[in-house]
Amino acid sequence: SKNWSEDDLQLLIKAVNLFPAGTNSRWEVIANYMNIHSSSGVKRTAKDVIGKA
């Protein structure tokens, strides 16, 4: 699996709070948010995000 930096983990926590349970396509939305805002340049999929959340 791809390494997660501390910044990416913080971003994931922020995204999970921004897009609560019940959000349509929640994990796709979170992955997309991370891909836009992450400084690491690593592209995450919904599966990556679910695996780490």
Rank of each mutant, 00 (worst) to 15 (best):
S1R: 03
S1P: 04
S1Y: 05
K2E: 11
K2G: 09
K2H: 08
K2N: 15
N3K: 05
N3E: 04
W4I: 05
S5T: 13
S5K: 11
E6I: 06
E6S: 15
E6M: 05
E6G: 09
D7P: 12
D7C: 01
D7W: 05
D7S: 14
D7F: 06
D8V: 01
D8W: 00
D8G: 00
L9S: 15
L9M: 14
Q10D: 08
Q10P: 02
L11G: 02
L12R: 02
I13M: 14
I13L: 15
I13N: 11
I13E: 13
I13T: 10
K14P: 00
A15P: 02
V16D: 05
V16M: 15
V16T: 15
V16Y: 13
N17Q: 09
L18F: 08
L18M: 15
L18N: 10
F19W: 08
F19I: 06
F19D: 00
F19P: 00
P20F: 00
P20M: 00
A21Y: 07
A21T: 13
A21H: 15
A21C: 10
A21K: 13
G22L: 05
T23M: 08
T23G: 07
T23A: 07
T23Q: 09
T23R: 03
N24H: 15
N24K: 13
N24I: 11
N24P: 12
N24C: 09
S25T: 09
R26H: 01
W27Q: 02
W27S: 05
E28C: 04
E28P: 03
E28Q: 14
E28I: 05
E28N: 06
V29H: 11
V29C: 11
I30C: 05
I30K: 01
A31F: 00
A31C: 08
N32I: 03
N32R: 11
Y33D: 00
Y33L: 01
Y33N: 00
M34N: 03
M34C: 10
N35I: 01
N35V: 02
N35E: 04
N35Q: 04
I36L: 14
I36N: 14
I36S: 14
S38I: 00
S38H: 04
S39R: 13
S39G: 14
S39D: 14
S39I: 08
S39L: 11
S40Q: 09
S40D: 07
G41K: 14
G41H: 10
G41I: 10
G41L: 08
V42F: 09
K43M: 09
K43D: 13
R44S: 05
T45P: 08
A46L: 06
A46I: 09
A46C: 11
A46F: 05
D48T: 04
D48E: 14
D48F: 00
D48Q: 10
V49F: 02
I50L: 12
I50H: 09
G51C: 10
G51I: 09
G51F: 10
K52W: 13
A53S: 13
A53V: 13
A53C: 08
